[in-house]
Simulated assay, not measured.
Amino acid sequence: MAIPPDIKDSIAKVKPLSQSAVRLMSIMADPDHTVAQIAAVVESDPILTGNVLRVVNSPAFGLRAKISTVARAVSYTGGNMVVGLALHLCASGIFNNPLDGYESQRGSLWRHCLFTAIASREIARFSDGKADPEVAYTAGLLHDIGKAVMSAPLGDSARKIIAIADKGEMPDFVAGEAKAVGTDHPEVGEAIAIHWSLPGPLREVIRHHHAPSKAKEEYRTLVYAVHLGDFIAMMSGTGTGADTMLYLLDHDYRNFVDISAAELEKVILDAGQEYQQVVESMFGSEEEMQ
């Protein structure tokens, strides 16, 4: 598909990511990264520094002594939370705006992407080293960014798409987007990823998270991990609106992720608990997250 000109214009207007966010994603993509590397990036960004210290000293962490240095803070929070904070700070217009075209409220996209990130990281641990859990987390945070731009062009089409899908006349919501607008959120998301100069693995996940079998072979396991993480988030009640659960699960994930039913159930439970902890530490509550 070719992205319509008006949507291309909207993509071109998307605010660039901060240098801190880009650098952190690059560091986290390296399996040999260190806490010192992450701390160095945080220390170069006063706003990010303040937020990392705020989070680590929040009641959710329950630390007895106040943490006042970035290096110690990062050792407690971990790189994934730092990346999440950096993205939330510099791309709030992407993650926090209401998605009217998907009939979802302010903050829904961020909640869904955060849950997906946590679940994707845990699923990647069952990939026999073929998908890096840290990269899966970052990819999960970014997988649905196309919806932020697709929302306006969709207008009031969501209800029509759902009605057609319920009749079995359309395979999934992605196909409905393409019919209604001429493109879909994975394609638009990939265009945003290119606009942001994101690395290949992240672009591939964004483009193919609803069709992982089409991903490049070298990234396919990673894409399947996020594909499954996305479904876990939706099944757990953290979707993005009217489109929730109107997608097809590719059961071939079993060929890429060696996880039993009991292990999958535990991932779902653990991801939900960690999600709540992260929300409380970053925002205090779901309500304040909006």
Rank of each mutant, 00 (worst) to 15 (best):
A2C: 07
K13P: 05
V14M: 08
P16D: 11
R23D: 10
M28T: 07
A29I: 11
D30L: 01
H33Y: 15
T34N: 08
A39S: 14
V42Y: 10
V42M: 09
S44M: 10
G50I: 12
A60Y: 13
A60G: 05
L63R: 15
L63S: 07
V70A: 01
Y76R: 12
G78W: 08
G79T: 01
V83Q: 13
H88E: 15
H88Y: 14
G93Q: 13
I94R: 01
N97E: 15
P98M: 02
L99V: 03
G101A: 02
Y102A: 02
Y102R: 03
S104A: 14
Q105A: 12
S108T: 14
L109R: 12
W110R: 13
W110K: 10
L114W: 13
F115D: 02
A117T: 13
A117P: 10
A119Y: 11
R121G: 00
R121A: 04
R121N: 04
R121Y: 07
K130L: 04
K130Y: 06
K130E: 14
K130N: 04
P133C: 01
T138P: 00
A139W: 15
L141M: 15
V149S: 04
R159G: 01
A165D: 03
E169A: 08
E169R: 14
V174R: 03
G176D: 10
K179L: 12
A180H: 09
A180P: 06
A180Q: 15
D184F: 04
D184H: 15
V188M: 09
V188Q: 07
I192H: 05
I192F: 09
S197Q: 15
G200M: 09
V205I: 12
S213C: 00
T221L: 06
L222F: 14
V223G: 03
Y224R: 00
H227A: 03
L228W: 05
G229C: 05
F231A: 01
G237D: 11
M245F: 02
L248Y: 00
L249Y: 01
D252K: 13
R254A: 03
N255F: 01
D258M: 01
A261Q: 11
E263H: 05
K266W: 06
L269G: 00
G272F: 09
E274C: 02
Y275R: 11
Y275V: 00
Y275K: 08
Y275N: 07
M282L: 15
Q290G: 08
